[in-house]
Computed example of a mutant assay.
Amino acid sequence: MTANWAALPFTDDPADRTPGDSLRDQQASAPADVFFIHPTIYTATRKDNRFWNASLNDARLNAAVDESTILNQASIFNAAGKVYAPRYRQAHLSVFYDDGAAVKQRALDTAYADVLAAFDYYLRYYNHGRPVIIAAHSQGTLHAERLLADRFDGKPLRDQLVAAYLVGMPVMRDQFFDIPVCESAGQTGCFVSWRTYRDDFVPPPGADRPGVAVVNPLTWTTATTRAPAELNEGGVLYNYDAGPIPHLVGAEIRGGGLFTDRPRFFGDIFFSTRNYHVADYNLFWVNVRKNARTRVQGFLGN
Rank of each mutant, 00 (worst) to 15 (best):
5 W>L: 00
10 F>R: 05
16 D>F: 10
20 G>R: 07
22 S>D: 01
25 D>E: 00
25 D>W: 02
28 A>Q: 01
32 A>K: 04
38 H>V: 09
39 P>Q: 07
39 P>W: 10
39 P>I: 03
46 R>F: 12
50 R>N: 07
52 W>Y: 12
56 L>W: 04
60 R>L: 13
65 V>F: 06
67 E>C: 13
68 S>Y: 15
70 I>N: 02
70 I>R: 05
80 A>W: 15
81 G>P: 12
81 G>M: 15
82 K>N: 09
85 A>F: 05
85 A>C: 01
86 P>D: 00
87 R>V: 01
88 Y>C: 00
89 R>Y: 06
92 H>G: 06
99 D>R: 07
103 V>P: 06
105 Q>E: 03
109 D>T: 06
109 D>G: 01
111 A>R: 05
111 A>D: 04
113 A>E: 05
118 A>M: 00
119 F>G: 02
124 R>I: 06
127 N>H: 05
129 G>V: 07
129 G>W: 06
130 R>L: 04
131 P>K: 03
133 I>F: 06
136 A>N: 08
138 S>L: 13
139 Q>K: 11
140 G>N: 10
143 H>Y: 12
143 H>G: 08
148 L>K: 13
150 D>T: 14
152 F>E: 15
154 G>I: 15
157 L>P: 14
160 Q>V: 12
162 V>A: 11
162 V>T: 12
162 V>C: 15
166 L>I: 05
173 R>L: 01
180 P>Y: 09
182 C>T: 00
190 C>V: 04
193 S>Q: 04
196 T>P: 01
198 R>G: 07
199 D>W: 09
201 F>E: 06
204 P>R: 10
210 P>E: 04
213 A>T: 03
215 V>S: 02
218 L>Y: 08
221 T>Q: 10
224 T>L: 15
225 T>Q: 14
226 R>G: 12
227 A>L: 14
229 A>M: 11
233 E>I: 02
233 E>T: 06
234 G>D: 11
237 L>Y: 10
238 Y>R: 12
241 D>H: 13
243 G>D: 11
248 L>V: 01
250 G>T: 06
251 A>G: 08
252 E>P: 05
254 R>W: 06
260 T>M: 08
260 T>W: 05
261 D>R: 14
263 P>A: 02
263 P>I: 05
264 R>Y: 10
272 S>T: 12
274 R>I: 02
274 R>C: 02
275 N>A: 09
276 Y>I: 04
276 Y>L: 00
277 H>I: 07
281 Y>R: 03
281 Y>H: 08
282 N>W: 03
283 L>T: 00
284 F>E: 06
290 K>H: 08
291 N>K: 09
292 A>P: 13
293 R>K: 09
294 T>L: 14
294 T>K: 13
300 L>E: 10
301 G>C: 00
301 G>H: 03
